[in-house]
Design a protein around this nucleic acid. Structure first.
Length: 823
DNA sequence: AGCACGCCGACT
DNA sequence: GTCGGCGTGCTC
């Protein structure tokens, strides 16, 4: 869909002015010639039918790390502001696709005109636009960066031939004046493909208003080979056979497929074509296959809270989804839309299984759509088009789905709202639930948090809450701190390692249970803290662990190189001869990765297959998955990555080899994260309650105790909520991390002081500004980062203080207003 | 992000 | 004398 600019009519007098201007200023020098900084021609014309249209300006976000830029509405554009629609705009001698984010400002800037409007309905939801503008204003993250991080489809509309872009000269305009610049191909008054012309002069003509352009969406096509009844030359016997195969199939997608079907060489097929007995045909491509919805969930009464923001946690996931499905159904039944956001592929898959059938039973015209980056481009585009046309009213997806142009949104569901997977690692450093919250507020749409464990931030009194009773739990704790020494050598011969207190990584209890699991033909999961072989070393005498000299993190042991290495900055050193604190001459190895634990498990159970599953090595687990009920034993040694896989069917044991890894992190969310992990382990298997065996030096940690005592998932989180009140951590305050970095340390340090001073002069108190301090990673990619932490009572106050940073510093200043990790 | 301009080392 | 390193700045 497009709005042709055919109404652009420029009378001969104006064209004459332009001709004069062309002769004065060479069009190709436009961007570099300072004389061209003044507008060469401003079409100050009134279209008699639609007065004042040319003065309208639109703010357009582009998929670049820049703010939204203002553009003039297309010449002769009729109608209201196309908020959320994609537009084609001129950008640096070329064209870009952007999204209309709102009215433009009062800029006196020499605005270019929007070239074309691609959509007659929004491509991006209004709530997302509002949330983006709000977040960008607070965080100073460029709007375009947010857009390119979250809009997963449609901004590449100018590539891949999706649109036919045609141009022609405005009636009466003679573009041959550009002759030299255009070369031999000069646009005339006849439509022609834009690709026929050189981009630079084309943009100059565009800027002068002498070009009409249109973008026509091309139907997707596939080419197939079809037989012809007669050719130009007779066929050989083999060719005859190939032709008959094609005749029988009707059509085939490629020569190779055809050759394969006929069991002849490709040359035979080519011969049939050469003799004119078959030809290529372009056909409209069938719509891509999209994920099919599951069966409708059971119908139950809707017992969930009716509130602006509510939460549902605990229990097992099918219980939560069953309750949630009732609410979603009620909203869809009255013709409204629902958006469900998941943090990762595993949660998304479960949500789709349990919720996508909600619309299957009732009105046939409404369908659920799954949306994530895992879809192909074609699938994503098809899904988006369906949402845009209103054929889809339930969208279940990752954070990318926040941009979906659902109209009349009645409910926004954020699944597992505390998941770290929601924190984007890309430039915008967004936290998806934060955007969802802003969207829901902007649209006045109810917001729901649903998951295994509530985030501490979800426990504020204004959020109506429901926590289901926990599933049955069988828990056994191995308390390393209380155990006596156990003579067992670590695997690192050559360096002196004192054996760990109780057998490590497999304690006696764990070893015993593992043997039982193997004997009974069941399956076990051993959770390792890290992948590979990476271990920490620790002085058995004083507990000292060598740390990186640049960073505030422990060095990791590398088996192959026999070196200690910093996993943040790459610093390496040999294993020290003695403890630098107490002089002890032996080390213990702790916190090994999957590699070591797998080796130990094989030693223990030589007859049982041991698999590894982590980012480095993902063994094929299908033997275990296909083995339900067949006594196929196996041990999987894995990192947390395993939780994104379906549970092992005959799972009898989950061993957490060293729980402390999740606690020894300098992050105020560490224990919340640890608690969440324990709860996720207890509900990994959808129906069974495998024994959860936790090895730890902190056997009385309250998170672990709350699980052991069978308390529901909300209890421990509630205690964290109270603890955070003291330190004014979220949700009792708002945090923001300002990262100041520069190439030279002195400059970074000075700029960080400067930033802190700017915050103080913006009114900050010493209780609100923490730092500046060198980042835990002393040097990162040749830059020295410094951190200034802001802790304010609320977001309005944060915004007020951050305004003090609206000037330039002699270093890069980045603000993360939803910091996660590393605090 | 690109892509330009701009100011200091090794080459036809 | 030029080619070229990537540092800083702009894009409506």
């Amino acid at each position: 869909m497009l709005f042709p600019l055919a109404s652009a009519r420029i009378d001969s007098e104006v064209r004459q002015i332009n001709r004069n201007l062309y002769q004065t200023f060479h069009p190709l020098r436009r961007h570099t010639d300072p004389r061209m900084s003044a507008p060469p021609f401003t079409p100050d014309l009134e279209d008699p039918a639609h007065p004042s249209k040319v003065t309208r300006t639109w703010a357009v976000a582009l998929p670049l790390p820049v703010a939204a830029y203002d553009f003039a509405a297309p010449h002769g554009f009729v109608g209201p502001l196309p908020l959320g629609s994609r537009v084609v705009v001129p950008w640096q001698n070329g064209l870009l696709v952007g999204v209309v984010m709102g009215e433009g400002g009062q800029s006196a800037h020499n605005l270019r005109e929007v070239v074309a409007v691609l959509d007659d309905k929004p491509w991006v939801g209004a709530g997302f636009i509002a949330a983006t503008l709000q977040f960008a204003a607070l965080s100073r993250v460029p709007v375009g960066l947010i857009l390119s991080d979250l809009l997963g489809v449609g901004l590449g509309a100018l590539s891949h031939g999706r649109y036919l872009h045609r141009v022609r000269a405005v009636a009466g305009a003679d573009l041959s004046l550009f002759g030299a610049a255009f070369g031999s191909a000069v646009p005339t008054e006849a439509w022609a493909a834009a690709s026929d012309f050189i981009a630079g002069p084309l943009d100059a003509a565009r800027e002068q208003g002498l070009l009409q352009e249109e973008f026509v969406l091309q139907p997707r096509q596939v080419t197939v080979y079809r037989p012809k009844d007669a050719g130009t030359q007779p066929l050989t016997p083999r060719q005859q056979h190939a032709w008959q195969v094609l005749q029988g199939a009707g059509q085939l997608p490629s020569q190779s497929a055809w050759a394969q079907a006929a069991q002849v060489s490709p040359g035979v097929v080519a011969g049939v074509l050469a003799r004119g007995w078959a030809a290529l045909h372009d056909l409209p491509a069938p719509p891509p296959e999209l994920p099919t919805a599951s069966l409708p969930p059971l119908q139950r009464p809707d017992t969930l809270p009716e509130a602006a923001v509510w939460r549902l946690h605990g229990g097992r996931d099918h219980e939560r989804y069953l309750l949630l499905a009732q609410r979603i159904r009620r909203r869809l039944e009255v013709g409204r839309s629902v958006l469900v956001i998941a943090p990762d592929a595993a949660t998304l898959r479960r949500a789709w299984e349990h919720l996508s059938g909600v619309v299957g039973s009732g009105a046939g015209d409404t369908q659920a759509a799954l949306f994530s980056g895992a879809l192909s481009d074609v699938q994503r585009e098809e899904t988006w088009a369906r949402i845009q046309r209103g054929e889809v009213r339930l969208v279940i997806g990752t954070g990318l789905a926040l941009t979906a142009p659902l109209s009349d949104l009645a409910l926004l569901v954020v699944l597992e709202e505390g998941s770290d997977a929601y924190k984007l690692l890309s430039g915008s450093a967004l936290f998806i639930p934060d955007m969802a919250r802003r969207m829901a507020t902007a649209l006045a749409t109810p917001l729901a948090y649903v998951g295994c464990v509530p985030a501490v931030e979800s426990l504020t009194p204004d959020i109506a809450g429901l926590v289901l009773p926990p599933p049955r739990i069988r828990l056994h704790i191995v308390d390393y701190a209380a155990q006596s020494h156990q003579p067992e050598l670590g695997p690192l011969s050559g360096v002196q390692f004192r054996p760990d207190k109780q057998g490590y990584p497999l304690s006696h209890d764990l070893a015993q249970v593992l043997r039982q699991v193997a004997e009974r033909g069941r399956q076990a999961l051993l959770l390792a803290p890290r992948r590979g072989y990476s271990a920490l070393i620790r002085c058995p005498n004083c507990e000292h662990t060598p740390h990186c000299r640049n960073c505030d993190i422990p060095l990791r042991l590398h088996q192959v190189t026999r070196q200690l290495e910093c996993h943040q900055c790459g610093y390496q050193q040999g294993i020290p001869e003695r403890c630098e604190v107490c002089g002890e001459m032996m080390w213990q190895a702790r916190g090994p990765g999957t590699e070591w634990i797998a080796a130990e498990a094989r030693k223990l159970l030589p007859a049982t297959p041991v698999y590894r599953f982590d980012k480095d090595q993902q063994d094929d687990l299908s033997a275990l998955y296909n083995a339900a009920g067949s006594n196929t034993s196996g041990v999987v040694v894995a990192t947390q990555a395993i939780l994104s896989q379906p549970a092992l069917p005959d799972l009898a044991l989950i061993g957490v080899t060293l729980a402390d890894t999740w606690l020894n992190v300098s992050d105020f969310r560490a224990s919340e994260r640890y608690h969440r992990l324990l709860r996720q382990l207890t509900e990994w298997h959808p129906t069974r309650a495998p024994l959860l065996l936790v090895q730890t030096f902190q056997a009385t940690h309250p998170a672990l105790e709350s699980v052991a005592q069978g308390l529901d998932a909300g209890v421990y989180v509630q205690s964290e909520y109270q603890l955070r009140r003291v330190l004014k951590y979220p949700p009792h305050g708002t945090l923001a991390q300002v990262v100041v970095s520069a190439r030279e340390q002195a400059r970074a340090s000075a700029a960080a002081d400067d930033v802190a001073a700017a915050l103080y002069s913006a009114g900050a108190t010493s209780a609100e500004v923490l730092g500046p301090a060198p980042s835990p990673v002393a040097r990162l990619k040749g830059m020295y980062p410094y951190h200034v932490l802001l802790r304010t009572r609320d977001e309005a106050r944060l915004s007020e203080l951050l305004r003090g940073l609206n000037r330039s510093f002699k270093a890069r200043v980045r603000v993360d207003v939803v910091p996660r990790g590393g605090l």
